[in-house]
Design a protein around this nucleic acid. Sequence first.
DNA 1: GTCTATACCGAGATAGAC
DNA 2: GTCTATCTCGGTATAGAC
Lengths: 217, 217
Amino acid sequence: MAPSTRARILDAALELVQQVGFTGTTVTAIEEKAGLSPGSGGFYRHFRSKEDVFRAAIERELERAQRYRREFERGAVDDPRAALSRRLLQQLDYMARIRPLINLLAREHGQFPDLTSRIGGILLDQGIVEEAGHLTRDLRPHVDHDDPHALLTVVVSALTGYHLARQFFGHPPAEVTPERFAATLAALVTSPTTGPAPCARCGHDEQAAAADPHGAE
Amino acid sequence: MAPSTRARILDAALELVQQVGFTGTTVTAIEEKAGLSPGSGGFYRHFRSKEDVFRAAIERELERAQRYRREFERGAVDDPRAALSRRLLQQLDYMARIRPLINLLAREHGQFPDLTSRIGGILLDQGIVEEAGHLTRDLRPHVDHDDPHALLTVVVSALTGYHLARQFFGHPPAEVTPERFAATLAALVTSPTTGPAPCARCGHDEQAAAADPHGAE
DNA sequence: GTCTATACCGAGATAGAC
DNA sequence: GTCTATCTCGGTATAGAC
């Protein structure tokens, strides 16, 4: 079925506002991109103002983002490092799909504080908090850390920074592919951070030894 | 000494363009903020156009950024993990000082491709490449990794993402302070990623054993 | 629902007095 | 070097015909 004029206007507005920002987007350009006669007020039969269509476009993207998130599949946790790597790639894919929201956040976060906190709330609360649960539940035995909140912040920051750097410059930093990036980050997270693991041959636990120098070992 | 009118115009333009973007900034507003009569063309005695002052402001920030980078002090590498943590905090501080450039990159990267690649070149080439040298030289014995480029990308992405999240939302993600963030990231990087370290008691090297199952060990 | 035509305003930029 | 005054253009939004 052909998209309605209203939907075409939303599409046009969303694309333009990402390219040239809110103030840089003109109603005339929206009309032209949506197949209406540029300069005619045809736009105003569907939206009351430019800010109106801007907010409507963001609401539509927020609903899409929540649908995407529900599609996340949780694979079996075989090798925890490989599972985490797959999970991180999924996260990068998710960020690519909600690119418009991230773009708008990066561009207009100073102009529309209410939308900023709304987007932030949905992305952070429903994304990060949920991910925190996953990390602590599924990877607990393999990922032992004394500050799980900070660990999660590092992971989320790395994903965010990698995504945005690609966005800004058009190519990944140092030309590192998403697969290499995810594998490296997963390897970091699934390694012991507070000391070496117990020895595979003799069972000596350096970490426990350091914590209890006069232990019964 | 009192700043010249030209400098005041540059200050005003830089601040406004970060708040409301290039198209959102009006020459009238720049004049008013710079202490000139708003609406008068006083601005045009100092710059030929709005784009002209925009580019001049960015050039000034780029020079400042290069000065900041030269001020980086390289402390003694005592404990490698603590040294890296200090270094990461320095990097966050640096990003805070070049905030205007990062803001403009996030905001106008689609509008001025030449400036985007110029800023990216200076920040990446002179920052990241230099940092790569530091990491591999000073931390080599303690940070052993099979893909140092990817490792550096993860570190830089994490710093970038943390900085930008603070910027966008006005507070750090999950309220994790820069100190906790740097300590956590440093701990991740200075841990073995490809396997446990040689055992402190019996000297068994699990990593070497895995690579050479029939070794002379 | 879409068009033509237009009112209105604000922004970029210039001319010329002081 | 800064001002007043002004030109011109483009953008938002509306009125009313079809």
